[in-house]
């Protein structure tokens, strides 16, 4: 039995995950908590948010995020790939700046129109 704090939403439910029982989750208050508990023990994932260079915008950095949760172990590899990205204004929310980031299959997209 492993104890976890659910991070799906800010509520912070205290989960119990039973590894010997098909990773059954208790202590969750929504279905997403159950899914988080299962995944967090077997393959923890996070959405990565960061910035990339942009020229011609109101600011020199443009915020971006992965379009899905990616394995925790790949976050630093994606950060490295983002160092090579430079956008030029204008960009729109959702615009893809990097495909298949660090081989995760996830895209990295713009989160602010600049």
């Amino acid at each position: 039995m492993k104890e976890l704090v659910c991070i799906v939403c800010p509520k912070g439910c205290r989960l119990h995950v039973d590894e010997e029982n098909g990773f059954a989750v208790t202590g969750n208050s929504c279905p997403r908590g159950a899914e988080y508990g299962k995944n967090e023990i077997q393959n923890p994932t996070r959405v990565l948010t960061s910035t990339v260079r942009i020229t011609g915008g109101a600011y020199p950095r443009c915020p971006v995020k992965t379009d899905r949760a990616v394995p925790k172990a790949k976050l630093m590899d994606i950060m490295k790939e983002l160092n090579g990205v430079t956008l030029s204004s204008p960009v729109e929310i959702g615009q893809v700046v990097l495909r298949d980031a660090a081989g995760t299959g996830a895209g990295v997209v713009v989160t602010k129109a600049l």
Binding site: I93, T111, K112, A113
Partner: peptide, 9 residues
């Protein structure tokens, strides 16, 4: 789940 700039937008 949105980022800050997306929420503002």
């Amino acid at each position: 789940e949105l980022t800050g700039p997306e929420y503002a937008a």
